[in-house]
């Protein structure tokens, strides 16, 4: 294996700060539009959809599950159907699974083979999720990875690492932080970070009064 165990291109960067792939992508679009294989409007619409997705959608699911036990049970049974209750589309992947962190079990998610991720609920995955070191070390050294993210689990907590596939994607339902009994569902959602739904962090602690 080579020394290039990271995820950055070594290609020269052009004067305007772009790699050669940028010109290649634009030329590909031009060719495909000329050939009427794709429509430019469809490409623009796809870009708009991509940038409109964010972890806020997943956070709504988590906050609802925190305040509504019956919803939580439905979410854990069938995340796609539960998301539809909140008018959220879980995307094209056939199965979306929500897994619950508890006092005794902590889940973290990886895709060792590529970058499978519940993009429709969390937005595009962060770079580190797609990086070669994360994809390797999440399974070989998960505790070390969590430590790098600043998360240390109590010794009696079982750590389960879930490896996503194109057909099955996971979203973590993190533990509700203490001291949040008085918060509204919307205020709770603001505590739910992207990383807490991947399982590499806990939700943000509430501001103390």
């Amino acid at each position: 294996m080579s020394e290039h165990d990271h995820d950055h291109s070594h290609d020269p960067i052009t004067a305007d700060g772009e790699p050669p792939a940028a010109a290649r992508a634009r030329a590909l679009e031009e060719l495909l539009v000329e050939k009427a294989v794709v429509q430019r409007e469809d490409v623009r619409r796809n870009i708009d959809r991509l940038v409109s997705r964010s972890p806020a959608d997943g956070a709504r699911l988590v906050a609802r599950a925190w305040v509504d036990t019956e919803f939580k049970e439905r979410l854990l049974a069938d995340a796609r159907a539960a998301a539809q209750e909140l008018d959220l589309d879980s995307g094209p992947s056939p199965v979306v699974v929500a897994v619950e962190n508890t006092e005794t079990v902590h889940h973290m998610v990886v895709c060792t083979l590529c970058s499978c991720y519940p993009r429709a609920l969390l937005g595009p995955p962060p770079d580190w999720y797609k990086s070669l070191p994360y994809r390797s070390r999440a399974v070989s050294d998960p505790h070390g990875v969590l430590a790098e993210f600043g998360l240390e689990l109590d010794e009696d907590v079982e750590l389960r690492v879930l490896d996503s596939t194109a057909d099955v994607r996971y979203i973590v339902l993190p533990r509700k932080p203490e001291g949040t009994e008085e918060l509204s569902e919307q205020e709770l959602a603001a505590l739910v970070t992207r990383d807490s739904m991947i399982g590499v962090a806990q939700p943000v602690a509430p501001a103390t009064a």
Partner: peptide, 9 residues
């Protein structure tokens, strides 16, 4: 593919 590379976060 085991590695010790840190994760660029």
């Amino acid at each position: 593919w085991p590695t010790d590379m840190p994760i660029d976060r």
